[in-house]
Simulated scan of single mutants.
Amino acid sequence: MERFITLACLFIVFAIGFLNLLSKLKKIRKKVDFANEFIENLFQYVGSHGRDGEAYTWLIHRSSKMQSQMGSMGRLASFSPPYSRVRYENYEIIVNLLPSLRQSFVDRISVSDTLSDSYAATIHESILRYIGILDDNSESISEKIRNPFIWFTTGVSILFILPVQILSWFGIIGKSVLIFLTSSYIFRLIVGISSLIGFFSAIVGLVTGWDQFMALMKPIVSKII
């Protein structure tokens, strides 16, 4: 019975870790699909020389979502529009350049073609860089999914985070505190050590039985204490 409980606990931890990694991979791929769809609509709008109102409406409607998902990848430290002496700091590319792109088509002067190409290229390149980061993250998680031990450490990490996460849900601690705690080196070290101890303890417990295992560990623990 004890071995069955141990095996069940191991399975639950492995399953939690595996499903968490799978969920992360699915979310990343969903973001990649959205980014590619955004680029497709951007090309459609630019290809119509600003005449495709439906494509522009789609872009504007989803521009805040795209900007939010891109985070720092969607901002320029500083930006000066072509043929302008004005310089903007921490410039949000998507939400600001889309209206500028539209205006360049509305103006319909010789310079506007250059402006529209410049704006479209800046938007496109920023999204491509963002997709590149997502692809890197996707590859990293895919590699982790192939490693069962990482399933276990991920599951342990989630169980460690859970009490703090619950406090965050109830507003007892802020989200920034949660992020700080879970991203700290000490937290990762504790999770790593706990994962190793928990994994090998469970394996030994399954092989020898908990009574024999505790009898084996008792003299070792007494020496340490």
Rank of each mutant, 00 (worst) to 15 (best):
S118P: 00
L22F: 14
I123F: 05
I224H: 00
V221Q: 03
Y83I: 11
H49C: 11
Q69A: 10
I94A: 09
L128H: 09
G74T: 03
A15N: 10
L22W: 15
V106W: 14
F11R: 13
F14L: 15
I166T: 08
M73S: 09
G171S: 10
V95T: 12
F79V: 00
F187R: 09
P81I: 02
S168E: 12
G74N: 01
L128M: 14
S157V: 02
D107E: 11
I60N: 03
L21A: 05
I60G: 02
I173C: 06
E40Y: 00
S48F: 07
G74A: 02
I127R: 00
K31I: 04
H49T: 12
Q103R: 14
F38M: 05
G53L: 06
D136G: 07
R75E: 03
I193E: 06
E125A: 12
L178Q: 11
V177A: 15
N20M: 06
K27P: 01
D135K: 14
S168M: 10
L25I: 05
K65I: 06
G174D: 10
R108K: 15
M214R: 12
V86Q: 08
I94E: 03
I5V: 14
N147I: 05
W210Q: 06
R129E: 07
P82R: 07
H124S: 12
F34S: 01
L97Q: 03
I12W: 13
K24S: 12
L98P: 00
S80K: 10
F4Q: 14
N90K: 07
L159G: 08
R85W: 08
S68P: 01
R87Y: 00
V204M: 11
L206V: 12
Q69Y: 08
M70L: 07
E143Q: 15
T57A: 13
Q67T: 06
I186E: 10
E89F: 02
F160C: 10
S140G: 04
V13D: 04
K30N: 11
G74Y: 00
N90R: 09
S138G: 13
R75D: 02
F4A: 15
F160S: 05
L10I: 12
I225L: 14
D113K: 07
V46D: 02
S72H: 12
S72C: 07
I127N: 01
S201C: 08
I197L: 14
I145P: 03
I12S: 13
F79P: 00
G205H: 07
S48V: 06
G198R: 03
V13G: 02
I220L: 09
A35W: 04
K144G: 03
F152R: 02
S195T: 10
D135P: 00
M217P: 04
S84D: 06
S168A: 14
M1L: 13
C9A: 15
S183L: 05
I39C: 00
D113A: 01
G47F: 07
V111Q: 11
E92G: 03
L206G: 07
M66G: 01
N137T: 04
F187C: 07
L196A: 14
S84R: 06
V177R: 15
K175P: 01
